[in-house]
Design a protein around this nucleic acid. Structure first.
Length: 307
DNA sequence: AACTTGGACAACCGCAGTGGT
DNA sequence: GACCACTGCGGTTGTCCAAGT
């Protein structure tokens, strides 16, 4: 076994009797065992006390973090599923960097894991596209391309049980549950942030405000996107935009293609939850560099672990 | 083979909120 | 109300490892 490099530091509250060297850095198997054993006897909580009594030369905070993010039995390991990714994207659009709150809706996933996912996958993609993750443009990239792609991925999972995003009870917090029959039954409450119809509406809205240069035909021809298989989106993106399209048109399509329950969606004029500058949308020059978008999306399967 | 680079994940740090005294 | 200890959260840094050169 490789012994991880750890450093030591003086206890923060270094009274004379507690003047012990505190360990830092990666946890060893022995430390994990000690922590698990202590918690199995005494339960969680009172982390500073735990740190003192367990024999671990760690801070209470460190013990808590190790337990919460790694040792706790219900912590799920492995890659995030497309369903979970969708939920993260959706909830982030609603709540921003409220990782702990988002994690509450992904059983077994920790705020740290979700935060890391966002930083390594999402922000990387944004950097690649040279746009800010908080910008309207990036939110639309997510809404217009990645969400549908993830939905498609779920669809391709075939016989595996599908995800339903639904309101668990009367409050407005969505949660995941397995639905054997519907591929994606989106019964999000009215203010639910992921709104396919809104997404398409906003695309239309953006197009109307945009120059004749449409939403990157290059990206549509991308094999990884495979959007040409989605007739109306494809049509939307490869032909001049027209102002007469209506939301019903797309929700009908969505019903057929993704089995989305339109009733659950709140069809209303596009508005972004996050505080992005409206000017971004109204000024085509602020919109994404289409070549960058195409380049960026070309490798999105890899970047987003679609494979 | 040696070295560099970048991705993924674990862990730490600072701060804010909360409850007890 | 002031102080203190504790807890939880979000941002940041550190570590490991695989891929590339």
């Amino acid at each position: 076994m490789i012994v991880p490099m750890s450093t030591f530091s003086k206890s923060a509250s270094s009274s004379s009797d507690e003047d012990v060297e505190l360990r830092r850095g990666p946890w060893t198997l022995e430390e994990d065992t000690l922590l698990i054993r202590y918690i199995s006897c005494h339960g969680e909580g009172r982390w500073n006390l735990l740190a003192k009594r367990s024999g671990l030369r760690r801070t209470g905070k460190s013990c808590r973090l190790r337990w919460m993010n790694y040792l706790k039995p219900d912590v799920k390991r492995g890659n995030l599923t497309p369903q979970e990714q969708i939920l993260i994207l959706e909830l982030h659009s609603k709540w921003g960097n409220r990782w702990a709150k988002i994690a509450q809706h992904l059983p077994g996933r920790t705020d740290n894991e979700i935060k890391n996912y966002w930083r390594t996958r999402v922000q990387k993609q944004a950097r690649h596209l040279k746009i800010d993750t908080n910008s309207t443009a990036f939110q639309e990239v997510i809404r217009c391309f990645w969400m549908p792609r993830l939905l498609q991925k779920i669809q391709l999972q075939g016989s595996s049980p599908s995800l339903a995003i639904s309101s668990q009870n009367s409050n407005t917090q969505p949660s995941i549950h397995v639905n054997e029959h519907s591929l994606l039954s989106a019964q999000v409450p009215a203010q639910g942030p992921f709104n396919m119809s809104e997404t398409l509406y906003s695309l239309e809205h953006q197009a109307m405000n945009s120059s004749s240069e449409n939403c990157t035909s290059a990206s549509i021809s991308s094999e990884s996107m495979n959007i040409s298989q989605i007739p109306q989106i494809s049509e939307y993106l490869t032909t001049p935009f027209h102002a007469t399209a209506n939301s019903d048109h797309y929700s009908t399509y969505l019903k057929g293609c993704y089995n989305v329950d339109n009733i659950g969606y709140n069809i209303e004029p596009f508005s972004l939850a996050s505080g992005s500058a409206p000017g971004d949308f109204e000024n085509p020059s602020n919109w994404i560099d289409h070549n960058d978008l195409a380049d960026g999306l070309w490798n999105m399967d890899e970047l987003w672990q679609f494979r």
